[in-house]
Design a protein around this nucleic acid. Structure first.
Length: 447
RNA sequence: GGCCCUAUCGUCUAACGGUUAGGACGUGGGCUUUUCAAGCCUAAAAUCCGGGUUCGAUUCCCGGUAGGGUCACCA
């Protein structure tokens, strides 16, 4: 181990894992790994009322989904005995005292443990912000525990960080004003100071802190997992929100990030979370996935709606992938029938067959007939888009490309928007495409 | 409001005190042999304001302004 660096990731199971927390976890992870240090996972569940099993499970699942491996996991609630010892010591030394209280809310104690604030000025060096100096006088004698067996956040964090040998506390800027009081406590228990690094916050479009109350489900990692985002994309995008390598490289693998991450290059100002850019990252990472993985994923989505062979899935996958940026979008579009034409005969109105509203009935029939004739002459085994295009091109050019190609494409897809007719014809095969052309011809003839 | 933090295109950001202030997302236009998508090319788009320091400030200092965070028997 290089510098015996130990970082930690301490989420609280009082809600689904916050997307901003993901970035904090990632930075701690990168920093530990690049220094051959340790990364400790600690669940901060001292608040029994608000901590929920389901949220704890969500945090564990998230860690796994992201691929963050930790060197140890602890529940803070299991360490109450240790916290108690420190509390007793603080009390015995007169650094804390039991205070009589007037309960302001239901459930509040009539006695709590308060820290005896020495009212000093605390200055600490932040890796990102430099020297930060705060007068602790207005902190008063803050409450550190409801009772000997019920420690509160500040006490628990300070004791645990100290006992676990945490060397670097990398956390959100919302903790910057908590730091002086934690330093005060740390000094009281005789611990040595870790290095602090306070990360800029992540904002919503309105520039306020991303919060569940204001911004709903979009703040939780779970939401993005459900939307079908790739972990690679989330990791890549979040890492670059508030940090950059100083080069133009934007697409990184996990391994590359561990190497490239540089805490001294972390931004000071907050950043707005932009889902458009996240989508771009996702698309870029999708493009880099092996074909088998892509096909397997598309198979799951497609077969939930249509019955198709593996071979068809293999052919359809690129066509669908070109038009979406997440698997969630693929699922939604397929369920909406956007790609119906790949799986079954299209249903459309005759009007759609006319190119730019030119309602020349006779010409349309003539052209469809000609296209059928031309395609019919192509050998089954030569039925490939390039050959189909070559065969059709001369006629299409002489007749007017739109006039020929548009109705051909509509006959095959039944959609206003779809891949071009040559791609479609190959995908559908000779038999099916001719069948669709004939059915279009029939439609027009009977009109 | 007190305390603390921050400030480059709409957004994420780059720029030893000397650059035509660069890149990316998004947006507009064009090309790619009909539409959509993808791809390629291209355009518009920024140093919050005011003082200093300096031959020269995006960059250093001060003030203002704006934004944010935090002020629990939550974490």
């Amino acid at each position: 181990m290089k510098n015996n660096i130990v970082t930690r990731f301490p989420p609280s199971p009082t809600g689904l894992l916050h997307i901003g927390n993901v970035r904090t976890g990632l930075y701690n992870y990168f920093f530990a790994l690049q220094n051959e240090g340790k990364f400790i996972f600690r669940i901060e569940d001292t608040d029994k009322e608000r901590s929920k099993k389901e949220y704890e499970e969500d945090i564990f699942k998230s860690m796994e989904w992201l691929g963050l491996k930790y060197d140890g996991v602890t529940r803070q609630s299991e360490r109450a005995g240790i916290h108690k010892k420190y509390l007793e010591k603080l009390l015995a030394e007169g650094k804390a005292y039991i205070s009589k209280e007037e309960p302001k809310e239901e459930g509040q104690r009539t006695e709590v443990i308060r820290f005896k604030n020495p009212n000093t000025n605390i200055t600490f060096t932040d890796l990102i912000r430099g020297e930060v100096s705060i007068d602790t006088t207005d902190l008063k004698d803050f409450v550190i525990a409801k009772s000997l067996d019920e420690p509160l956040y500040h006490l628990a964090v300070v004791v645990d960080d100290f006992e676990m040998g945490i060397t670097h506390v990398i956390r959100g800027e919302d903790h910057i004003s908590n730091t002086p009081r934690q330093i005060l406590l740390l000094e009281a228990i005789g611990g040595s100071r870790p290095v602090y690094a306070h990360l800029p916050l992540i904002f919503a479009e309105d520039r306020s802190k991303l919060s569940k109350r204001k911004h709903g489900e979009r703040v939780s990692l779970k939401h993005y997992i459900e939307q079908g985002y790739l972990p690679e994309a989330i990791i890549n995008y979040m890492s670059l929100l508030g940090w950059n390598p100083g080069t133009d490289q934007e697409i990184f693998t996990f391994e590359e990030l561990i190497k490239a991450f540089d805490i001294s290059k972390v931004q000071k100002g907050g950043a707005i979370f932009n889902e458009e850019k996240l989508k771009w990252f996702n698309k870029e990472h999708m493009k880099r996935l092996p074909a088998e993985v892509l096909e397997q994923k598309m198979k799951e989505i497609i077969t939930s709606v249509y019955k198709v062979s593996d071979n068809d899935i293999k052919h359809f996958t690129p066509v669908i992938l070109e038009r979406i940026s997440t698997f969630g979008e693929a699922r939604a579009l397929i369920q909406q029938g956007e790609f119906d034409y790949l799986f079954k005969s299209p249903d459309y109105s005759i009007e759609l067959l006319y190119w730019k509203g030119q309602k020349d009935h006779e010409a349309l029939i003539r052209r469809l007939n000609e296209v059928i004739k031309i395609l019919g002459r192509i050998d089954e085994k030569d039925y490939k888009q390039a050959i189909i295009k070559d065969a059709l091109w001369e006629y299409a050019t002489s007749e007017g490309r739109g006039e020929v190609l548009w109705p051909t494409r509509v006959a095959l897809s039944g959609k206003e928007k779809s891949p071009d007719p040559f791609v479609l014809a190959e995908l559908l095969g000779k038999e099916e495409s001719l069948k669709r052309l004939h059915s279009a011809l029939e439609k027009v003839s009977h009109a």
